[in-house]
Design a protein around this nucleic acid. Structure first.
Lengths: 114, 114
DNA sequence: TCAAACCATGGATCATTGTCCATTGTTTTT
DNA sequence: AAAAACAATGGACAATGATCCATGGTTTGA
């Protein structure tokens, strides 16, 4: 599919998709046509971009996402890949714990520890 | 206390404290001295800055923190304040949910849904 | 066929969240 | 009293994560 359709399906803007692609988060092929050089995206790009959207909301950086993508590439030693992903999971759990702390603090403030 | 001591106690740098102060996240008085205009910070600044450090890690923005601070000010209707804080709590829970999703996704990838 | 919609590229711009630096003045320490 | 450490101010700089724009080409659909 082309970029417009991908943007449509994922809610991620064309500009942002191009930005992600420049930064190695997503890849595409060049269309077969000899008259244009439109990029062609595969179906799994939809899943990937939706994952990115959630991951960004969860606080992961572009660099985090890139390292995850690289760790799942065929060229990557699967053992290394698992370690990278496990470390990202740990960071996320850490962050979840922080969020819990902040929620507790705010609950206290709300209930008049003021 | 002065800014150096506050930085020391909280792990937040002088520059960052000044940045927060410029942005309405923290307040200080001017020292009594007639010879300098050093700022003077109260003890509760330590607690507040530590809260900020955790909250930033949890993904809250400066604007979020400012609105929380404003909502707990004496000048603010307590009812309004509680609503603001409740909405921030909801956002944090939302974010925690996102993190759970991302973790689940990564667990799957790690276990070879590759 | 011809306008409207789409695409690529490259660069500019923006907001956020700091950090760093120079300058100048004040305390503290020695 | 002189040096070292600290403080205020203001502006420059930086990284991140986008978004916007101009230009020029392509596809589509009315």
């Amino acid at each position: 599919m082309r970029i417009g359709e991908l943007a449509e399906k994922t809610g991620v803007s064309r500009d942002t998709i191009r930005f992600y692609e420049r930064n190695g988060l997503i890849s595409s092929s060049v269309s077969d046509s000899t008259t244009n050089n439109y990029r062609e995206y595969k179906d799994d790009c939809v899943v990937i971009l939706k994952f990115y959207a959630g991951a960004r909301e969860a606080g992961m950086s572009i660099a985090d996402l890139r390292s995850i993508m690289e760790s799942t590439a065929d060229s990557c030693d699967p053992e290394v890949g698992r370690r990278v992903i496990q470390s990202k999971i740990s960071e996320l759990k850490e962050r979840a714990g922080q969020i819990e702390n902040v929620i507790r603090f705010l609950e206290k403030v709300k209930n008049g520890a003021n």
